[in-house]
Simulated assay, not measured.
Amino acid sequence: MLDLNDLKRRVVHPIQRYLVNPVGRNAPVTLIETTGRKSGQPRRTAVGGRLIDDQFWMVSEHGEHSDYVRNIKANPAVRVRHGGRWRSGTAALLPDDDPAARLRQLPGMNSAVVRAMGSNLLTIRIDLD
């Protein structure tokens, strides 16, 4: 039997994968680029978050169930496109951080969507070079 988080993930994931991400990759939004853990190819995902000094903070809707989080676990070297500029960095998964509190510090619209659609929230900090 599916729990609510599994059901959310099964509904939201294909929408993000086949609609939101393809549009986001070509729009002026923030992107995170990871290295595919199986393919070794660059994988770009539209994300929301906030740049604070030389750190980019974000919250993953589906935590360790997200493909880009699995890619980060395999290789934390990432790139972030923010404000039209690509920057390299190292991502850290922060399971002990309070993602609900973190979302209150991040852009409102994206945070509202993450709260509504999220199933296993996980804070991510990217230390930019």
Rank of each mutant, 00 (worst) to 15 (best):
D98H: 08
I72L: 08
M117V: 04
D97L: 07
R87G: 00
R10Y: 04
S66H: 03
T34C: 01
G36A: 09
N21Y: 13
H13D: 12
K73P: 00
D3M: 06
I32C: 08
V69L: 02
R25T: 07
A101T: 12
I72A: 08
E64R: 09
L4Q: 11
L7N: 00
G89S: 05
L51D: 09
L51Q: 06
N110W: 15
A101M: 05
R44A: 05
L19F: 15
R25Q: 14
D67A: 13
A101K: 14
L93I: 12
D6T: 12
P95V: 01
G118F: 03
V80I: 15
G49V: 03
N71F: 08
D129V: 09
K8Q: 03
Q105W: 05
M117Q: 13
R79F: 07
L93P: 00
H65K: 12
A27N: 06
R70P: 01
G108K: 13
I15D: 05
A112G: 13
A77T: 10
S111A: 14
G36I: 03
R9Y: 13
K38T: 10
R125Q: 11
A116K: 11
G83H: 02
L51M: 07
A74V: 04
S88L: 11
R9W: 07
M117D: 01
H62Y: 12
M1N: 08
A101D: 10
L94E: 12
L128V: 04
V113A: 12
Y68C: 02
I32P: 01
H62V: 02
E61H: 02
G48D: 02
P14Q: 08
Q105H: 10
A91K: 07
R10H: 12
G89E: 03
R43N: 10
W57L: 14
V11Q: 06
E64S: 05
N75G: 06
A101I: 04
L4E: 12
T35Y: 07
N26E: 09
V29I: 13
N21K: 06
K38S: 11
D67T: 10
L31K: 08
Q105A: 13
L31T: 08
P99D: 01
A91G: 06
I52G: 00
A91E: 01
H65F: 05
L7R: 11
V114R: 10
G36M: 08
R125P: 02
L93T: 02
R125N: 08
A101H: 03
